[in-house]
Simulated assay, not measured.
Amino acid sequence: MTIEVPKSIDINVPNSESVQRISKSSKNGGVQSAVMMPTIKPIFDKLHLAYNLKRANESKFKLLVAIEGIHEGKLTDISILKDKGASAIYINSDEDMNLLKRVFEYAEFLNIPIFVNCNNKSLSSGIMHDSEIAYSLGVSGIPTYAESAEVAKIYELSKHFNAKVVFQSITTKDSIQILKNKPKNIFIDVCIDNLYFCDENLQDFNSLYKTFPPLRSKEDKEALLEACASETVDFISSNHIATTHKDVPLEEAEFGISKLDIFTQLAYSLPLSQKTVTKLISQNPAKLFNIKIKETLILKKGDYDVDISKFESKGKNCPYKKLSFQIV
């Protein structure tokens, strides 16, 4: 028995590999279009933007490119870059507050969404979620307030503007609590890894589960799933990061989990209704960027075994390969 679902729009694909690989992996994973985030390599000027858009055109793939709003402590040419094809702005929350304010002013005036990585870098030098598990492994942890304190700050700033603001890759129940009564111009994005896994998966020093933002507690995971079910969360995205440096000690391993090749399949395997998943990975992203979903994907009900040998991504850093799960 099969189900037919709309293809997805992945709103968080860091530029960890070439546009060609991203396009091929997206097609594997039932992703009609993706938003490239400049979190691995900079995209802050016309040259960087044009290069990525050209490669996407060559690959015949609908790539939406987010540009840095602030680069090396200076405001970028947001208006010019939007005219040249930028689809979104990306910023880190711990930049200078006056610069953040300027970015919000531009975003409101130009009607372009802002994606905010809410993370205090000075508190985030650890390996994994700050918990008893991290302590037992003898590794440094990343506290939940490294995120939630920044969420509170950006939320307060957001309330003074009509810009569309996406709180990207939220991981904690505290952040959800802060944002639960958000106005219509504010959106919550959650990475799919944080809906499947928690810090317990790292108990055996398994570097495949080392990612950023980190996998949080089981309680946080359940809170995120509940927020998805109630549609407090607006988007589920992949945060697909292709790395090759994983077969090393946990402290030395790179952050990131590869899963763009199976993104839509994974989403419909979550303990959420089909209607909810469709909203969070297809309808809501399409509405944010005013694009149409023209294609569908056929999924076979029952067991689904992940075969990483078929990944188009260069990253085989995928813990999902050990799972056999139900498409519900």
Score class of each variant (00 low, 15 high):
Pro143His: 01
Ser217Pro: 03
Ser282Met: 02
Thr2Met: 15
Ser23Arg: 05
Ile241Tyr: 12
Pro285Phe: 06
Ala56Asp: 06
Glu251Thr: 11
His245Phe: 13
Val13Trp: 02
Ser25Met: 07
Glu219Ala: 02
Ser23Asp: 04
Ala163Leu: 00
Lys84Val: 00
Leu260Gln: 06
Ser140Pro: 00
Cys191Ile: 02
His245Met: 06
Ile257Cys: 08
Leu266Val: 04
Leu260Ala: 03
Gln203Tyr: 15
Lys275Cys: 00
Tyr268Leu: 02
Lys294Asp: 13
Leu49Glu: 09
Asn119Asp: 09
Glu95Thr: 05
Thr2Trp: 14
Ala253Pro: 09
Asn194Val: 01
Glu150Ala: 09
Pro113Ile: 04
Lys321Ser: 11
Ile40Met: 08
Arg102Pro: 00
Lys62Arg: 13
Tyr155Arg: 06
Ile176Met: 10
Ala286Arg: 10
Arg21Asn: 14
Ser258Trp: 10
Asp45Leu: 04
Ser140His: 13
Asn290Pro: 04
Ser125Ala: 09
Leu179Arg: 07
Met37His: 08
Pro38Ser: 08
Gly256Cys: 10
Asn52Met: 11
Lys84Glu: 14
Gly256Met: 11
Met1Lys: 14
Phe161His: 15
Tyr90Leu: 02
Phe263Asp: 05
Ile11Tyr: 09
Ser140Ala: 11
Ala227Gly: 08
Phe61Ser: 04
Ser258Gln: 12
Pro42Thr: 00
Lys275Asn: 10
Leu225Cys: 03
Leu224Glu: 00
His240Thr: 01
Glu231Val: 03
Asp174Thr: 01
Asp247Met: 10
Ile281Ala: 05
Ser238Ala: 10
Tyr209Lys: 13
Tyr106Ala: 02
Lys316Pro: 00
Lys180Val: 01
His240Ser: 04
Leu75Gly: 06
Leu123Asn: 06
Ile22Ser: 04
Cys191Ser: 11
Ser33Arg: 15
